[in-house]
Amino acid sequence: MQNFHPKHFAVVPAAGSGSRMGAVRPKQYLPLLGKPLIFHSLSVLCGAPEIDKVFVVLSVDDAEWGSHDWSALGPKLVPLFCGGPTRADSVLAGLRAISREAEQSDWVLVHDAARPCLAAWHIEKLVRELAGDEVGGLLAVPVADTLKRADGHRRAIGTVPRDMLWQAQTPQMFRYVMLRRALEAASNVTDEASAIEAAGLHPRLIEGDATNLKVTFPLDLHLAEWILSNREAC
């Protein structure tokens, strides 16, 4: 029987080490405004009325999660110690772990652990605009900069037309059964939309904004701090 009132589950893969940050501890636990980096997006997800439960997919041997106090985030937050070596592996493991709780037609919103500047309006817009969509979709922003193709020596060998190009963000939102089947069939992907595309489907692009940045390099951490500090002051 079709579920006419689908639930919305958030899945946050957080089993990676964040090696490009050059830090000793995993990126998701780096301090940001007095809290672990991942705390900020989890707080928004747990506080969103659209989200029924938030699953954080951690590595099996994660020793740091338990050293932090997550109680302020409430009962929606559920850690899953089943993460794999890649993002796709972790998301798929998380989907398998919640198989008894999620109906096939329930929505799953996958969000990067390294995007701490997620805002409530990002979630609200994504859920609202994809509510009746047959495929699902993702937050994204149109590419504004001129793009260059480089050779092996970092010399420009061409300019890539930016028309119709978008930069993918998260959350990425798809039906539980559709996303699980897509990831089962295409494990070598860097995001969920790629797996859906590999299945021959076309995710919808929901325009977000540049504040929903991904922390990849040390400077990004300072940018995230500035965004969160100024957002809270508004």
Rank of each mutant, 00 (worst) to 15 (best):
W121E: 11
F174P: 08
D133F: 03
F217M: 15
L80R: 11
Q28M: 12
C46L: 03
R162C: 01
L92G: 03
V135P: 05
S105N: 00
N230D: 10
S90Y: 06
A23R: 10
M164A: 14
R155H: 13
W107V: 02
I123N: 00
E192I: 05
H222F: 14
Q104W: 03
F4D: 12
I196Q: 11
F9T: 04
V91C: 09
S67R: 14
H111M: 00
A140Y: 05
V160F: 04
A119D: 01
D191P: 10
A193G: 15
W166D: 03
L223E: 14
R180A: 01
P13D: 08
R162H: 05
S41G: 02
I123H: 01
G94V: 08
I206C: 15
I123P: 02
P142S: 06
L201Y: 13
R100W: 00
D163M: 01
D145K: 06
R149T: 04
A15E: 11
L33A: 13
L223K: 15
P142C: 03
A185E: 13
L126D: 07
A193P: 13
P13A: 09
R181M: 06
E124G: 00
P75R: 11
A10R: 06
G84H: 13
G208P: 15
G47Y: 03
A48M: 02
K125Y: 02
S19L: 11
H153T: 04
V141C: 09
A210C: 12
K148F: 13
A72Q: 12
L165D: 09
G74R: 05
A156W: 02
S41R: 10
L77I: 10
G16K: 08
A140H: 09
L130N: 10
K27G: 15
S105P: 00
W226D: 13
R115C: 05
F55G: 04
R154A: 11
V189M: 07
A144V: 12
A88K: 06
V91K: 10
